[in-house]
Design a protein around this nucleic acid. Structure first.
Lengths: 224, 224
DNA sequence: TAGGTCTTGCTTGTTGTCCAGCAAGTTGTC
DNA sequence: GACAACTTGCTGGACAACAAGCAAGACCTA
């Protein structure tokens, strides 16, 4: 009877471990600052294994990005379905969606960091049309929910962009500009307060956007 | 009279050229991805000159950061002085300040990119107390302007953080998430529209923040 | 000519990629 | 069922490319 091996051969497990390690390292340190040696070490495999499975460092990076985007698209789709099935007022639905989006991102800081790095590097790695679908779906959902026609959907796009900006920011700058302007993000309660502020801002902006709608703002404001 | 040299020796000029080139390259590609060879080439000097003037790559980077922060602090100070000297209503002043801030950043995209990279890298390079002063000054200015006491100034900090987030976002994601949600940033007019949206959002948020104030929102909304 | 400015050659270290090889299975054959 | 042939998973050495830092020297100007 053979002694229990410390690590059994398992391609799927190794691939996933490498992908996990690479995602964490790329998000934390950036592409150039992480070596395949580090990725291998973090994944519990050797220096050469990432190359064996993914061909090259660039392809590994691409694989990390693809997986992350897949998860986000999935989440957006689920959130949209939930919103459409709901019978709440647009304000309440929007407040819930923003709140959920905020929480989703807070639980996956790697995703925001990866996109941020991509955006800064400016190589059109993200501009492949496939990656845009999550955003397009979200926009369509918001426009439909708010009952905006095509002419007004530009406003919905602006609002969506603002939502994204507001939700992303604390994840990146919790230790830089947030403390510089006197906002702490030490505890979960700090994030909760920030979330309430974002939801409130968006709802007030919404009321300014569609002035004709009867305001159920007070009700929606109490969400969360 | 000597024949005009193609390039005369001039330490101050070389230093500045290296600083400019390094700022652009660090902002565009990041610290690790830019070599001193590239910096030298972009500055019109040789490979070794950046090292001669700044000692090491790390010190050059620090110098770039210091210069950029100095400029921003200067601008915030000037904007604050202008606001304090004004006799407009708080809403109008805030709208003008947000608009000016938006324009200032749009004219210096390198600054936002550098901070963003710093924030992502997570090394506490920005946490030196000196760099925080611009944010603190801005917060004090806003709190004073809106007549908030200490208990409410937390709300002012939240609002300031939102302003920063909203103004920074288009500069970084004009080619990534903006097109993904259907917002173009091809022309100056696109930026103008975005700016109006941000100002409007902030003002509506302000009205929600201080409900007791008599609303001069319509007036302020017409700003710019 | 003295000293600051700037360049070039060199050293040392790191990184990505290629590749030969080996161990653990898997399949086929008798 | 046993043995050989073959595939797959994974390792670690070799190598070329390139980086930063240093030092020696060239060049310019005062």
């Amino acid at each position: 009877m053979p002694i229990r091996q410390e690590k059994e051969r398992n391609a799927a497990r190794s691939r996933a471990a490498i992908l996990d390690a690479a995602e964490a390292l790329f998000a934390a340190r950036g592409y150039d600052a992480t070596s395949l040696t580090e990725v291998g070490a973090a994944a519990g495999v050797s220096r050469g294994t990432p190359g064996y499975f993914f061909g090259s460092k660039a392809e590994l990076y691409r694989a990390v990005l693809d997986r992350a985007f897949g998860e986000v698209r999935e989440a957006v789709r689920a959130g949209r379905a939930r919103a459409l099935a709901s019978s709440q007022s647009p304000e309440v639905i929007l407040a819930g969606a923003v709140s959920d989006y905020f929480d989703f991102l807070a639980a996956r800081p790697n995703f925001v960091r990866l996109i941020e790095r991509e955006a800064l590097s400016g190589n059109g790695e993200l501009e492949g049309a496939e990656h845009l679908s999550a955003g397009q779906e979200a926009l369509a959902a918001i426009s439909a929910e708010l009952g905006l026609d095509d002419a007004e959907s530009g406003d919905a796009a602006q609002l969506l962009l603002s939502i994204i900006a507001l939700c992303w920011f604390p994840l990146i700058h919790a230790r830089t500009v947030a403390p510089a302007v006197g906002v702490d993000f030490g505890t979960a309660a700090d994030f909760e307060r920030r979330k309430r502020h974002v939801v409130s801002l968006v709802l007030h902006g919404l009321s300014g956007l569609a002035r004709s709608t009867t305001s159920t703002l007070a009700e929606a404001d109490a969400h969360d």
